[in-house]
Simulated scan of single mutants.
Amino acid sequence: MNFTSLRIITADIQPLIRFYEKVTGSKAIQYTEDFAEFKTALATLAIGSTKTLALFGGDTIARPASNQSVILEFRVDDVDKIYEAQAEFFNACMVQMPTTMPWGNRSLLVRDPDGNLVNLFNPVTGEAKTRLGQ
């Protein structure tokens, strides 16, 4: 089994698309007005409007903007460079400034327009680099 994708269900798809285009530096592939994807080498981030819930059995199976337990994580080359280049953008949604975590990753934690936590990180210690195959 391979982890393939994570999907965010939202009531307002366009702000999330713009946010993740800015964060990832890539353009969303928007298949319909209610569904878009960001493809990476390892997995896909999908964004679907609440209208797509009908295809899964009804609009009560997921609630947009209610995540309280999941952090979406993106490994980047240099958190500090990304923050410096886009400080104004990140300051508007900041949870935690770039910080070195006890497990050896440098981390920038923000919230997307729906309130989901998003962590941009890069390994900085030898142990973290080894653990993450760098």
Rank of each mutant, 00 (worst) to 15 (best):
I9H: 10
S26T: 15
K129F: 00
S49G: 14
T52D: 01
F56C: 05
L16P: 05
S107F: 05
Y31P: 08
V79S: 06
N105Q: 15
F19N: 07
L53G: 07
Q14L: 15
F35Q: 07
N67Y: 13
D34F: 08
Q68C: 02
R75E: 14
V95I: 15
R63S: 04
T10E: 10
T24V: 03
T4S: 09
S69K: 06
R131A: 13
D114I: 03
F38C: 07
F89H: 09
G133I: 07
V95C: 05
A28Y: 04
K129R: 15
T52Q: 02
K129V: 06
L55F: 05
G25H: 01
T32C: 00
P98S: 10
E84I: 00
A92R: 13
D78I: 02
D78W: 06
R18I: 00
I17P: 06
K22Q: 14
F3L: 15
K39S: 12
K27Y: 01
P123H: 05
Y20E: 05
L132W: 12
A128F: 11
E33P: 01
I9E: 09
F56E: 08
V95Y: 09
P64F: 01
K51C: 03
S66I: 00
L120G: 06
F90M: 03
V124C: 13
G104W: 09
T99I: 08
A87I: 08
A85S: 13
